[in-house]
Design a binder for these strands. Structure first.
Lengths: 159, 159
DNA sequence: TAAAATACTTCCTTGCTCGAACTATTGGGT
DNA sequence: ACCCAATAGTTCGAGCAAGGAAGTATTTTA
């Protein structure tokens, strides 16, 4: 009981920090949150189609179109129609885009290391475990159907 | 080393969840993130002036004006000029606003309890400790000056 | 009493978000 | 072959948010 009250107080006290995590981390002054996510997705998958981006970001295609448009206009992404199926639009990084993503990753890594240094090995493990537990539980409640959660940590090669 | 790589992967994998925490929690369909925060601030302080809201939310006054305007238009807040210093505008909850905040708190509490149930006492304590440690460290780096951090858990009476 | 500081608001631009409507292309069924 | 449905996107319109710049009162101070 006492534990629960404390956790609620804690959430209310830190709601601002929780709701605006991008302010912990000045990720990049050039791009917005959504734009950074989109760039990282394109980077990770090499070449992506609009629907995939919308899927990964969990946003409607109409929103994705806007985000990608701005990145194309800034010269970070390339948009081109697929010739074998002309409904499909595929997205790639330009060279400027690749350079930008590299910089973003460095920045993220710096922050991660900064946090990492604050934690004991035990805390680090528990943090990840708890985070995954919470995310999985909340996802499970949202859509108690369809496919496997598949929310465990995936290994991604960095550099 | 292995720990750090894992933590970086972890962050990259869950960047969407981290950057859009409002999607974990369908806080309220009626209000936006900023609007909810503004309502909670007014609720907690009883009567607040615009500058205080801007301060707490860490946004410029021009942004605060817009957020409060929409809440006033929806009938949740009351805006009135201070008679002793007519530059000042103070904000209060209307009855509808009080009812809404009560509902928001119930919703938050439900989510907090849902998370709480997933955690052991040890995890709960560590989670709060780590969270505060990280927030304090990042704040300290941002502004290595001025006043005390004052980021420890404050107790707030609920209901 | 004039000038500076304070407390806001207004205006403008950019971005995100979403639904609805629309275009283009492809695939299936008969 | 032809029509219809499904698929893949874009466009449009409206609301919300962010923030800088400029403007309006009002109060303080020098």
């Amino acid at each position: 009981m006492a534990g629960e009250i404390k956790l609620l107080d804690f959430f209310l006290d830190h709601l601002k920090e929780i709701l605006y995590p991008e302010e912990w981390i000045d990720l990049d002054l050039e791009l917005s949150k959504s734009q950074i996510l989109a760039m990282l997705i394109v980077d990770r998958h090499g070449e992506v189609i609009m629907s995939e981006i919308a899927d990964y970001l969990n946003i409607p295609l109409s929103t994705a179109t806007g985000i990608i448009n701005r990145l194309v206009n800034k010269g970070y992404l390339l948009r081109e129609r697929n010739e074998s199926d002309r409904r499909i639009v595929s997205i790639q990084l330009t060279e400027a885009g690749q350079a930008l993503v590299a910089g973003i990753k460095v920045t993220i890594n710096e922050y991660v290391e900064r946090i990492d240094r604050l934690l004991t090995e035990e805390e680090r493990e528990m943090l990840m475990r708890v985070f995954i537990k919470v995310i999985e539980a909340l996802n499970r409640e949202k859509e108690p159907d369809i496919k496997q959660p598949e929310t465990s940590v995936k290994k991604i090669e960095i550099e």
